[in-house]
Write a protein that binds this DNA or RNA. Sequence first.
DNA 1: ATCGACTATCGTCGAAACACGATGAAGGAG
DNA 2: CTCCTTCATCGTGTTTCGACGATAGTCGAT
Lengths: 118, 118
Amino acid sequence: MPVTVWRRRGRPARREAEAVRTLAGLARALGHPARVRIVRTLIERQACIGCDLVDETGLAQSTVSEHLRILKAAGIITGEIERPRVCYSLNPAALEPLRAFLTTATGSPAPARPSRRA
Amino acid sequence: MPVTVWRRRGRPARREAEAVRTLAGLARALGHPARVRIVRTLIERQACIGCDLVDETGLAQSTVSEHLRILKAAGIITGEIERPRVCYSLNPAALEPLRAFLTTATGSPAPARPSRRA
DNA sequence: ATCGACTATCGTCGAAACACGATGAAGGAG
DNA sequence: CTCCTTCATCGTGTTTCGACGATAGTCGAT
């Protein structure tokens, strides 16, 4: 039996571990209904003021601020200061890695296609 | 007294809240490096036995089992019992909603939608 | 029947998430 | 100036997560 041996010890990359952490970080940032709703709102409207999001979610202002901080830390949204308001908007590029990962996971007919090395 | 106040902003339905919860649940299930790595492994290999995943992640067996349970609860993976082993495999359909959401969020134009012509 | 391999579950502990009210800073309006 | 609005931060309490060891169950092999 020829036994297909995959790399048993060859650590392909520390880069991979970093990518995994990035994906997990993005997913975790989206892993709360309030934050999904915020992102969803920012998709519909192009931009949004914080107090509108407070109204939308029905949560306390401090709680919404915390969720916004998490989304901001993940790079998913950006806050442009417009004293005394802050105008939040989506940063689609930040979600790209996760989108690509999920596209591979869902519709990927390319399991054995190592045409891209590094 | 036709009290059709219909909410302040015309919120379509409770269905939306459910969709939001579904998306958050999927994202949360992916919101951990170990689980991303498991899913990633299941994408590469088509299926995998639990002990291989223990080896892959470097975590304790009970910990991996817990992560597998979370992924299973989210519907992302399925476990086919093959006494005394369990053969895990990915369930791409479960991730579809999240993929679609992210595709919308990233503004990916015309998401390869080649009709139903398989 | 006994052993070994594989997995699920339980109990526990520390760390992090979550939600809130209270407080403070930074303008704009009166 | 004072008042109002908007937002961030702090402190607190509750809940959940993450990791582990220990234990028990199920099968094939001896």
